[in-house]
């Protein structure tokens, strides 16, 4: 089957983008801190933050695409995602990180670190409704 086009680049990672936290506060994307995500998830009725540890980073099926394997949540469930190498993830206590931080900085002007095996990223799951 023909290769699917890479996912489009979202606009909100561009430096200066305005992000609204769960309490209504507005921040620029480059100013977000780990606490902003944690507090927003605490307020949220349907979203829960999970810790997702990077277990493996491989070249994807096409140039510019990476395959990242995470261990998600307390049960360390294995999840693989295919992303553009410039796609930034938020690492606990560190901030925005991608497989190719130079390219992330070039495209989004967003300060970014190198995503590495062992990094713990912020991810979301839906809360179980009781």
């Amino acid at each position: 089957s023909p290769a699917a086009p890479p996912p489009a680049l979202p606009p909100y990672f561009t430096k200066g983008s305005i992000i609204q936290l769960a309490d209504g506060e507005l921040k620029k994307v480059e100013e977000l801190r780990t606490e902003d995500f944690i507090q927003s998830a605490e307020i949220s009725s349907d979203l829960k933050i999970d810790s997702s540890t990077v277990e493996r980073i491989e070249d994807g099926p096409r140039p510019g695409i990476a395959l990242i394997q995470f261990a998600v949540g307390e049960h360390r469930a294995q999840v693989s995602v295919e992303v553009r190498v410039e796609y930034p993830f938020f690492v606990f206590g560190q901030g925005w990180s991608s497989c190719c931080p130079d390219r992330t900085s070039q495209l989004f002007d967003l300060p970014c670190s190198k995503l590495s095996v062992g990094d713990v990223c912020i991810s979301l799951t839906l809360r179980e409704l009781k």
Binding site: P10, P11, Y12, F13, S17, I18, I19, Q20, L21, A22, L26, V29, L32, D36, F37, S40, S44, L47, I49, D50, S52, F70, V72, G73, H75, A77, Q78, V79, V81, F89, F90, C121, I122, S123, L124, T125, L126
Partner: peptide, 25 residues
């Protein structure tokens, strides 16, 4: 004159990936 410009505001959760594992049936 400065023309008013609408600025996009994105919700915080747009920036965080959902990495929920698939649930076994």
């Amino acid at each position: 004159n400065v023309e008013p410009r609408s600025v996009a505001v994105f919700p915080w959760h747009s920036l965080v990936p959902f990495l929920a594992p698939s649930q076994p049936d």
